Simulated assay, not measured.
Amino acid sequence: MDNQMLKERLAGAFVALITPFTAADDVDHVALGRNAAWMLARGLDGILLLGSTGEQVHLSEFERALVLDVGRQHIAADRIMIAGTGLSGTRQTIEETKQAGRAGADVALVVTPSYYQKAMNAANLVNHYRAVADASPIPIMLYSVPPIINVTLPAEAVAALVEHPNIIGMKNSGGDPQVAGLYREAAADHDFIILGGSAHAAPGFLLTGLVDGVILAAANVLPEAAATLVQAARAGDIAAVRRAGELLRRVSETVGRHGIAGWKAGLAARGQVGGPARLPLRNLNDSERQQVATWTNELVGAL
């Protein structure tokens, strides 16, 4: 797929899919395939595997490769498979991105390195991303997720990186409209896709053109609402954007308050397999799982 076609197809709705584990704490590859197929049947344009919600940081190299291989088997060629490949170092990230290419990923999503936070200035981040993009066999997207890693990708770094032919876009999981505006301004003269990662900010960002599509954790529970949100924004249907946005906001404030364990329980309430989250994340008790199921059923009824 050429980059222009890929960019057009990236301007859509994606789920940041959880990684299901068995009771023995192994990757549940059967459930992963079923979950992926179920998501795509509900109108999503593709799937992000090994993102923050996919517990990438909790998986071994072998497990990450397994997730991508299984994912590609169940994500049809007419849908986009995005692979989270960002690791702490540039060399490791390059190798991870090459592996994603071998597994058949369409694009790599590369989170900003964060271990040495004080050193993650614009110049160092530009050097990192250029090195990864130069070596990557597939296009890459930048990924700024300050709520989790406490590093915000500077707009000046984006401005320097949009020129690279193998960097085709970014995911902005922040909710600050000023920062989102600076990203759009940095990419104003380029065909550069920006995807939103905040369910709260997504409706406004879509309607004002600050993002072109979304990759949402909330889509684990309400994939239909995520798909409708983007479709309605594209059609200029403000009322439908507001309705879908309200459902995504509500699922984020209820199910999402429990983090990854909550998303997994919400997906289980939809009849799919979530499984446990890995330590040190806390799993839900029976009462919390029942509450998540109640919230999920109420929200599904409002679709």
Rank of each mutant, 00 (worst) to 15 (best):
L206Q: 12
A201P: 06
R42W: 01
Y143S: 01
V57H: 11
G301W: 11
Y116I: 05
M5E: 13
T296W: 07
A180E: 05
Y183H: 00
E185L: 13
L153N: 07
V151W: 09
V251G: 00
P165A: 04
M1P: 11
T19G: 03
D2F: 02
E55L: 05
L248P: 04
A265T: 03
E61M: 04
A217P: 10
L279H: 10
A119Q: 15
I82L: 14
S60P: 07
W295Q: 07
G271N: 04
I47R: 06
T97L: 01
G54Q: 07
A41V: 06
T22I: 03
P276S: 07
K7W: 10
P223I: 05
A41D: 14
R79F: 08
A225D: 09
G71T: 08
R184V: 03
T85I: 07
V126S: 11
F192H: 06
A133E: 13
P20G: 03
G236C: 01
A108V: 14
V110C: 14
T19Q: 06
I94G: 12
A219M: 12
D189N: 15
A76I: 08
L40C: 10
A133W: 10
R91Y: 01
G197R: 11
I238S: 11
I18A: 11
G256L: 01
G266W: 05
I18G: 07
H58E: 12
R282P: 08
G301T: 09
G301R: 11
A77Y: 09
E246S: 13
N35L: 02
V126P: 10
H58S: 14
D191T: 09
S144W: 07
L40G: 09
A293M: 02
G89Q: 02
L40K: 09
V179A: 09
G301N: 13
V27I: 13
V30E: 14
A131E: 15
R130M: 15
H164K: 04
Y116A: 00
G213V: 12
L10R: 04
H200R: 06
E246R: 13
E156K: 07
G89T: 15
T22K: 04
T22Y: 03
L87G: 01
M81A: 08
D286C: 02
A180P: 03
L142D: 06
G43I: 09
R72A: 04
D189K: 12
V110N: 13
N166W: 06
G169L: 08
L284T: 07
A277C: 05
Q231I: 00
I94Y: 13
I167L: 02
T97P: 04
A265Q: 05
H58G: 10
E8A: 14
T296C: 08
A77L: 11
R34Q: 13
A269V: 02
R42V: 00
A240R: 13
G84N: 03
G301M: 10
I260L: 09
P146F: 08
A100T: 13
H74D: 06
P20W: 00
K171T: 01
M81K: 01
E55F: 08
K171L: 01
G271T: 08
G33I: 09
G33N: 10
A103S: 15
G274L: 01
V292Y: 09
R249F: 12
P146K: 12
L10H: 05
V107E: 03
K118A: 15
V273R: 06
L10I: 06
H29V: 13
T97F: 04
P139Q: 13
W38R: 11
A232N: 01
Q92Y: 07
G274N: 02
D106T: 11
